[in-house]
């Protein structure tokens, strides 16, 4: 993956599509007011950004997403390490995890509302659940891929189990963990917004629903734009962070996308 920001044919394609958007809406090819011109969308975006409404909502959504990522990711790493190092726990809880994993996260939101309410607890939990499973499976895969020789090396120097786990296993598994996070990142944003759309008056998801009910198409597409840019930006930022953190992994030309 190249990180340099040179204008490519991809950028040109995006620009063409945006132009097509503007023209198609101005000439009303779709015969609907729900397809507003890009410029109207940008005006709406600028307006609600300057009033401070959108930045506040986006901040709230990002905060919930980050909290969910941290909680679900940490749980995934701990449980994954546990499953991989103590086969007993994997036999005990593995089937349950396999049973819960395929359930689409939006489907568990209504029951979660009953238990956790409508506020941050519910929304952060929903994001955490989304992140938990990819990180868990990647962690397990990563621990399984740690070479027996590497751990034996630690033992031959008289290094204890805890230090081996922290100084050998964890760094070795880190690329897998980060890959799990990268896979969940886009999903975490989507799920945070979906949870906000279902209930409560929080975040960009609620804004989207309000604008939909108010029939304000430019604001709806402004939200979509914000989400697209957020998703892209988060992924980019994560890639940069990942390349810094595990430069050795990329230098060795390894892949951990599972």
């Amino acid at each position: 993956m190249r990180l340099s920001a040179r204008p490519s044919s991809g950028v040109v394609l995006v620009a063409c599509l945006l132009l097509l958007w503007e023209v198609s809406a101005r000439l009303d090819w779709m015969h609907t007011p729900n397809w507003p011109p890009l410029t109207d969308v940008l005006v709406a975006l600028a307006h609600d950004t300057l009033t401070g409404e959108l930045p506040l909502l986006v901040g709230g959504t990002l905060w919930r997403m980050a909290a969910g990522l941290a909680a679900g990711g940490a749980a995934g790493v701990v449980v994954g390490m546990l499953f991989a190092t103590l086969p007993m726990t994997a036999r005990l809880f593995g089937p349950m995890v396999e049973l819960v994993r395929p359930i689409p996260i939006p489907a568990v939101i209504p029951p979660l509302v009953l238990f956790l309410g409508l506020d941050n607890t519910m929304k952060v939990t929903v994001v955490a659940l989304t992140v938990f499973f990819p990180v868990l499976t990647n962690t397990m895969q990563g621990v399984a891929a740690v070479e027996a020789d590497t751990l034996a090396m630690g033992r031959t120097f008289g290094i204890g189990p805890l230090r081996r786990a922290l100084r050998i296993t964890l760094p070795a598994v880190l690329p897998y963990i980060l890959a799990g996070f990268r896979v969940s990142l886009a999903l975490a944003l989507v799920v945070a917004v979906v949870a906000e759309m279902i209930a409560g008056e929080q975040g960009i998801g609620h804004y989207l629903v309000m604008m939909q009910f108010a029939g304000r198409a430019p604001e709806i597409y402004a939200t979509v734009l914000v989400l697209a840019v957020l998703g892209y930006g988060l992924n980019r930022a994560f890639l940069v962070m990942e390349h810094r953190t595990i430069h050795w992994w990329f230098a060795m030309g390894r892949q951990a996308d599972g």
Binding site: E147, D149, T150, I168, L174, W249, M252
Partner: peptide
């Protein structure tokens, strides 16, 4: 296997 026993990070 030195590649396995050395820590690449």
């Amino acid at each position: 296997q030195y590649t396995r026993s050395l820590l690449p990070w």
